[in-house]
Design a protein around this nucleic acid. Structure first.
Lengths: 194, 194
DNA sequence: TACGATCTTTGACAGGATGTAAGATATTCA
DNA sequence: TGAATATCTTACATCCTGTCAAAGATCGTA
């Protein structure tokens, strides 16, 4: 009764992991690559891919989960509970951006998947929650506005961070973009004037 | 030398328009539909589609252009130059949201297309420009903050409007979402405190 | 270590979509 | 009406997704 809920699957686990790794690489380099290409990169047959993921879309979702986990880990490492809420928020936002930036094409691809809104929300819930709790901390401490919902503010912060990332890709200097983002966030989050 | 740069194409124009119309309908209902389905809906053969659009992707871009035009028209009808800048901005933003909402699935599909950042920016330029000039008007009149660039503020407003649309789809009451959006925009755009 | 269960491989197939091509036919404009 | 242009029909090549079945390899365990 030692820890092995995964009965009988030493090689199966290996394959699954290899496929996921390969999918990360291959599909990020070419989002239109077929499962055959992924399989080859994983050192496995196409049919083995199907043995683990019934459909292309399911594989994509599994990859999405993986990126989400990376993101969560990066966020947690950025110490959401330390220091001023505003600083923490920016720090965590920045950390969360890294994995998505690392897998740009793949992120686009996954974002384009047909999705029921509920499942989508549930998928992003852990990320949204972490941000929302930073916002809540700021609201409790008086740093942030309490008239707007924490989840709204958290989501808005994410959007602005995305915009900043894209603006930067568009060629503006990182410093200028960083400053625009920071000022925008501070204005948006600022508590009501007395 | 009368206006007919489109030499020799009375029926060709008809077909092209029919195909575009059909693509709007069909692909919005089912983004995975094949070109055969589009052709049939247009009352045309698949090969005729290829005669007008060398590839599926090109057809999609043509559809995107069409939606962009719809959006521009809707924005212009919302009188960007009338009244207070903040009201105008919200009004125009709201008008711009309608076409995208009308073709939800299609918008997703197009958004997922592989795209060179430059081409993408150029494509959205007319929309961004209109919004930016409303922002500039507000900046000149002292309604808006001048420390942030007008194009940044315009883009930020678009993101927040998107967020509002999604939040509403997620089940929150339109009134609450509208209010959150309005308050957020006003805070973000507000001029620096003396 | 040998067995039985689980995974993987091989090979093959069906269905469907994207593109391409050529010749015949119809439409348009002049 | 005649010449140019667009469309239709038919056909083909290719790629990708999914599915199936049987043989082979690997794993955990008795």
């Amino acid at each position: 009764m030692t820890a092995s809920a995964d009965n009988r699957r030493a090689d199966a686990r290996r394959s699954r992991a290899a496929i996921l790794d390969a999918a990360l690489d291959v599909l990020d380099a070419d989002p239109d690559a077929g499962l055959g290409t992924v399989a080859k990169a994983a050192g496995v047959t196409r049919q083995t891919v199907y043995a683990h993921f019934a459909t292309r879309e399911r594989l994509l979702w599994a990859v999405a989960d993986r990126i989400t986990e990376e993101t969560l880990a990066a966020m947690d490492e950025a110490e959401p509970d330390a220091g001023a809420a505003a600083d923490a928020l920016i720090r965590v936002l920045d950390a969360a951006a890294a994995p998505a930036r690392r897998h740009r094409a793949l992120t686009r691809l996954i974002g384009a998947l047909p999705v029921e809104p509920d499942a989508d929300r549930e998928r992003h819930a852990p990320i949204a929650d972490r941000l929302a709790s930073v916002v809540e901390r700021g609201q409790r401490s008086g740093e942030f506005d309490t008239r707007l919902r924490a989840d709204w503010l958290a989501a808005a912060a994410v959007r602005l961070a995305h915009l900043a990332a894209e603006t930067q890709e568009a060629g503006q200097t990182p410093a200028a973009v960083q400053q625009a983002l920071r000022m925008s966030l501070l204005k948006l989050l600022a508590p009501a004037a007395p």
